[in-house]
Write a protein that binds this DNA or RNA. Structure first.
Lengths: 137, 137
DNA sequence: CCATTTGCTTATATTTCTACAAATACCTCC
DNA sequence: GGAGGTATTTGTAGAAATATAAGCAAATGG
């Protein structure tokens, strides 16, 4: 049955990402902030957002988003700007320091784990193709 | 460069597991408990453990493990038994209700996401092999 | 305009997580 | 059988996360 195989694969993928090569702690230590702030910083570095959009992206509510952004602003990693078309709204944008910090987080989180690096090239190739397909599906 | 491809693959895997098909919230809602309790329950359902072993498995400290197990016991999902060979130590074991709840959690967490189920059989086969290799490495 | 809605903030409260110090009970080794 | 070490619990404190209510400013739509 392929259902069974799919389950084994899924458990394996979860195990790799969530247990074996989890890097939350490492990133939080490196940046000196909680993981939700790292997520916020990376989300904002990827593209500036209104508070509402950020809250939706992080799956948090608006008041908490305010606290998180307050903290990033206090650290000099982000700025609030008034939305040009709706002055109720703020666009949150990372500063150059924020960009740099987000890049540091990315480099830790995106670093492939050793087993992936020592995969035979043709396997890596195949995996690349399959993962792309899974992401597009 | 294969390093670059490995990075793309790793980012893709993280995205699949952590963003697209994250099921923490769902499991916590279904069982009515925080995720660390779900993890504890599943760990104990997989095999009974002493407090120390459980704490090590969950990467939490001993006092917090006591709180978590207290809660599971209060819910009737686990029991403490005196270790037969060391009366300082307790073996924590899930109850039948705990086994049932852990199975419910498993069925949510292990359910392969749709894109994985609609993968061509030969791709799933290959993926299965590669994931096994990554886990063993 | 005025009422209503929307976007955000402030305030407040609760739960969850993390950490550390100290107490208790038991084991082991001399 | 006493010293020192281990397993767990208790207590405490604080940070982080989550939720709700209330408020302000600006937009929208009669």
């Amino acid at each position: 049955m392929s259902e069974e195989r799919a389950e084994r694969v899924w458990r394996g993928l979860r195990s790799l990402v969530l247990e074996r090569h989890e890097r939350r702690r490492e990133v939080c230590d490196a940046l000196g902030m909680s993981f939700i702030r790292v997520k916020a910083l990376r989300s904002l570095a990827a593209s500036p957002k209104t508070m509402r959009e950020l809250a939706a992206d992080l799956l948090i509510d608006a008041p908490y988003a305010t606290l998180v952004v307050d903290d990033l602003v206090r650290r000099g990693l982000a700025r609030r700007e008034v939305h040009p078309e709706d002055r109720r709204s703020r666009i949150v944008r990372v500063t150059p320091e924020g960009t740099e910090a987000a890049a540091r987080a990315d480099s830790i989180l995106s670093a492939p784990p050793p087993p992936l690096l020592s995969l035979p090239p043709e396997d890596l190739d195949t995996l690349d193709r399959i993962v792309a397909r899974l992401l597009s599906g």
